[in-house]
Design a protein around this nucleic acid. Sequence first.
DNA 1: CATGACGGTATCCTTTTCGACACTATGTGC
DNA 2: GCACATAGTGTCGAAAAGGATACCGTCATG
Lengths: 120, 120
Amino acid sequence: MPRIRHERFDCSPGCTVEGTLRYIDGKWKGVVLYHLFEGTLRFNEIRRRIPNCTQRMLTNQLRELEADGLITRKIYAEVPPKVEYSLTPRGRSLEPVITALKIWGDANVTLVPEVSHAAA
Amino acid sequence: MPRIRHERFDCSPGCTVEGTLRYIDGKWKGVVLYHLFEGTLRFNEIRRRIPNCTQRMLTNQLRELEADGLITRKIYAEVPPKVEYSLTPRGRSLEPVITALKIWGDANVTLVPEVSHAAA
DNA sequence: CATGACGGTATCCTTTTCGACACTATGTGC
DNA sequence: GCACATAGTGTCGAAAAGGATACCGTCATG
């Protein structure tokens, strides 16, 4: 959960940039959203796509995304539990943002093991 | 300084999304970059544009942006110190990303004082 | 002589984040 | 009767991020 970056987002024109970051910040939110653009996924399907994320962390990130109205959680009252996650329209509207992030990353981040101050 | 999100960015296709976030995460980096798109700015010019950011924090953010090769720092050996910050080409290449962030924020974040789990 | 502007540092402390690990319930397969 | 899969929750502790505050040197101005 990112800190509350500001109380209001009108302090300067660039503030809404931070406002958006508030939603997609959180160690795994970007990737989770990215995978949900493919379509609805079950909990463990997401887990398998993001192996480094612990179960607890994934739950947290999903809960925050849900609280922010970006995804919905659909529970099936079945015997082996089944929960499906999918994007809300609001979540889907983030697609250009995630795409921009991915394009830049593909061009500038690709397979860089240590990025600058990682050693500090 | 954001934690090292992954060691490598090839774990899944969405990973470069996180890779990009690594650069613009940090409480004030997004806004700093945003303001530098206007053009070169001196230290205190940036400060005045982001009043809620403490001097120490601003210094930190600028140093990290510099270490990541997104901005350059030009020191003039003058009597009242003068330091100018401007974007590198790499930093400027983030413009579509910041713009996407801003567009979404303007449409979805505008003037929301408390955003969801802020009270938690 | 004191104050302010400039561009920072250093130190301390609190809050947040995140990872490890254990634990839950139910039903199925072996 | 035991393990496994599902989708979680709870607790603990370390590390990182970030805020508050004080301090630095120099020159100009009042």
